[in-house]
């Protein structure tokens, strides 16, 4: 553990030095690139939390994509029809939880193969959201930006971290809270025990089924928040296939971040940075990369990242296995 910490603090220093270097060259562009890196990365990070919460308690969740799609859909249309963004956010949260609780029903109660259960979620969400999709609706506005007093005035850090919409702040805080929760609370210890070796938890009086339900519900809320962020804060509209593979990218980030919220956040910001830098290079005309290639970037990075981490990381041991109490 200590080894890991020194490695990651080294990484942090390197990142700070790189940022400082570019900032000294061109403060404006560096700040804007860093800001958009966060904007691109955050939804991926939040989506990765859905996977982390599920798998840490032993349920493989490849249905993140469907969870995002359905919650964004519900968030957008409830927000547009009620002309109220708060209702939109609530709708997205409910949408996300509907999807993960369906996964819980399939995987925990009915002990269905979890890959198939996740696929069902994805197909269901894609089907529902395109069947009920109607053109011509619009949100009254998007969520307003809120500049945090004082903090937003700090050079570089202020504009990058403290000039966003409310869901960005909430998302960042919740990711850190999830890390604390998983590794430093009773809930986290029990959750991880359930994900690694459920019968130990059971014999210690921890209800495996109950905890899996609770955590999938929380995971759904994370998914709903991501959907709300995408549609109500970042983009302001909804389209068929709106999630565009972010749920699958999030799965890769979860693996790359070793099922650790902070790790996944770091990985997501790395992804966001790559995208932001590529965009910047194109805008300034430094390089002339055709747009489709820029659009490909997240997917190519996903493949690269998975290839790098394949075989080196270990998922929670009980992920994917329905829990059976010992017979007789």
């Amino acid at each position: 553990m200590r080894k890991l910490t020194s490695k990651s603090s080294l990484l942090t220093y390197i990142v700070i030095i790189i940022i400082a270097f570019f900032y000294s060259r061109d403060s404006l562009v560096t700040t804007s690139v860093a800001g958009s890196a966060l904007l691109f990365g955050l939804p991926l990070a939040m989506a990765a939390m859905v996977g982390i919460l599920s798998e840490r308690t032993g349920v493989v969740n490849i249905g993140i994509e469907g969870t995002l799609l359905f919650s964004a859909f519900l968030g957008f249309f409830i927000g547009a029809l009620s002309k109220n963004l708060i209702f939109g956010i609530l709708g997205a949260l409910i949408g996300g939880m509907m999807m993960t609780l369906l996964l819980a029903l399939l995987a925990v109660n009915w002990k269905m193969d979890q890959i198939i259960a996740g696929t069902i979620i994805n197909i269901l969400a894609a089907g529902l959201t395109s069947f009920f999709y109607k053109q011509g609706y619009a949100l009254p506005s998007i969520l307003p930006r809120w500049e945090v007093p004082f903090l937003s005035k700090i050079p570089f850090i202020g504009p990058v971290f403290f000039t966003h919409g409310p869901l960005t702040y909430i998302g960042l805080i919740l990711i850190i809270a999830l890390w604390v929760g998983l590794f430093h609370t009773v809930w986290g210890l029990r959750s991880r025990a359930v994900g690694e070796h459920p019968s130990s938890a059971d014999s210690a009086g921890v209800s495996v089924v109950r905890l899996r339900y609770i955590n999938l519900a929380i995971a759904g809320a994370f998914g709903g928040l991501t959907g709300a962020y995408l549609t109500l804060e970042l983009v302001g509209s909804f389209d068929r296939g709106f999630s565009a593979g972010k749920g699958f990218t999030a799965l890769a980030l979860m693996i790359f971040g070793r099922w650790n919220p902070i790790g996944a956040l770091g990985a997501a910001i790395f992804f966001g940075t790559a995208q932001a830098v590529a965009n910047q290079l194109m805008i300034t005309g430094v390089v002339n990369i055709p747009q489709p290639f820029i659009n490909m970037l997240p997917y190519i990075l996903t493949i690269v990242v998975l290839a790098i981490s394949a075989g080196k990381v270990r998922p929670p041991a009980a992920a994917g296995a329905p829990y059976e109490k010992e017979k007789s």
Partner: peptide, 14 residues
């Protein structure tokens, strides 16, 4: 009935 990736103390108090 032990969780392999956790410490002795964590397992005992679980």
């Amino acid at each position: 009935q032990l969780v392999p990736v956790m410490t002795v103390a964590e397992n005992i108090v679980l």
